[in-house]
Structures are given as C-alpha cells and as structure tokens.
Amino acid sequence: MMRINCPYCGEREHSEFTYGEDATRTAPDNDAPMEEWNKFVYERDNPAGEHIEYWHHAFGCRAWLKVQRNTFTHDISWVGLPHEHPEAES
C-alpha cells in the first residue's frame, strides 16, 4: 500500500487520493503550431524510475499535490504543493 504524506493532513493511505497525471508537462502557447500541441496532448515521457506527478487528495483536504514517486518500486521520495518542485527542497 502506498502512503502519501499530504502537507496539510499528514501521511494517508493512497486510497484517499486520486491520480492526476505527469506533472512535468506544460502546455504550449495558444498560437503554437499543431505539432507542439500534438506532443503536449498525446505524447508522454512515461519514465521507468522517478516520476513527478499530480495526486488529488479527493477524500481528504481536496488539495492537488505534486508527488515524486518511483514507477518501479512505488517509493514516494517527495510530496509538495503544485507550484513547488522536488529539487528546491534538497
């Protein structure tokens, strides 16, 4: 069972959370070429290893969180707020 340490609520079971998506994607400008929009909407890095992603504490404080989790081991190494970044902590 994964546990996510919510900055507001403390450590909770992941069944309280719903998964968002890869948190490293950024939307291109509105007038960017379709090629870039295609990459943004459909293509993913899908890394095997450390993954930075959004989780929603849906059955808790309802805050969106940013989480760094290993996609091989499910180990969670960092949890922060959406505007924060794991490297800023270390």
Binding site: M1, H14, S15, T18, Y19, A48, T71, H74
Partner: peptide, 13 residues
C-alpha cells in the same frame, strides 16, 4: 490501478 507504473504488482485498494 490508475497510476503510471512499471511494477508487475498492484496495490490493495
């Protein structure tokens, strides 16, 4: 399970 993973095992929920 609904989250990105390469682990060949899931979680209890």
């Amino acid at each position: 399970d609904g989250y990105n993973t390469y682990a060949q095992r899931g979680n209890l929920p």
